[in-house]
């Protein structure tokens, strides 16, 4: 599994690789936290989550958008997720720790998850996600 920040002039462009879809979603969430707080959170609290989408890209869009909502409203810095992914849905729990100014480098807001440039490719070995966060 890997998370890489690619060059993008205005926003944060991220590439995530993982062996399974479940890991890809969990890692994508960690990547979002890395952009927002300098690093993903630590385990501690959990929060339930369920989103729907017509295809894999819209599922990922809905999932990451939901994480933005959870991190902002619940103040949860997410460390990972235990998810079940089926036809048109993702459900499960996300794990994380409460936000603190000191521990999370004061944070950097992400305004939204862009559909532009969002792609998920599956080759023999892994899933590869490219996604742009509006910062």
């Amino acid at each position: 599994m890997s998370i890489e920040e690619l060059d993008h002039t205005a926003d944060a462009k991220i590439r995530v690789k993982a062996g399974t879809l479940e890991d890809l979603f969990s890692e994508a969430g960690r990547a979002l936290m890395q952009v927002m707080y300098g690093r993903p959170g630590k385990d501690g609290r959990t929060y339930p989550l369920a989103v729907r989408g017509d295809d894999l890209e819209s599922l990922m869009h809905a999932y990451l958008s939901e994480l933005l909502f959870i991190t902002e409203v619940e103040g949860l810095v997410i460390s990972g997720a235990d998810l079940r992914i089926g036809e048109g849905f993702v459900e499960g729990v996300v794990r994380g720790e409460p936000f603190s100014m000191e521990a999370h480098n004061a944070g950097r807001g992400v305004k939204g998850i862009s559909y532009s440039g969002l792609s998920i490719v599956h080759d023999q070995e892994s899933y590869i996600l490219d996604v742009i966060f509006d910062v």
Partner: peptide, 9 residues
Amino acid sequence: IHWGYGFPI
């Protein structure tokens, strides 16, 4: 003008 999402900035 610069590269955004949807419309350019």
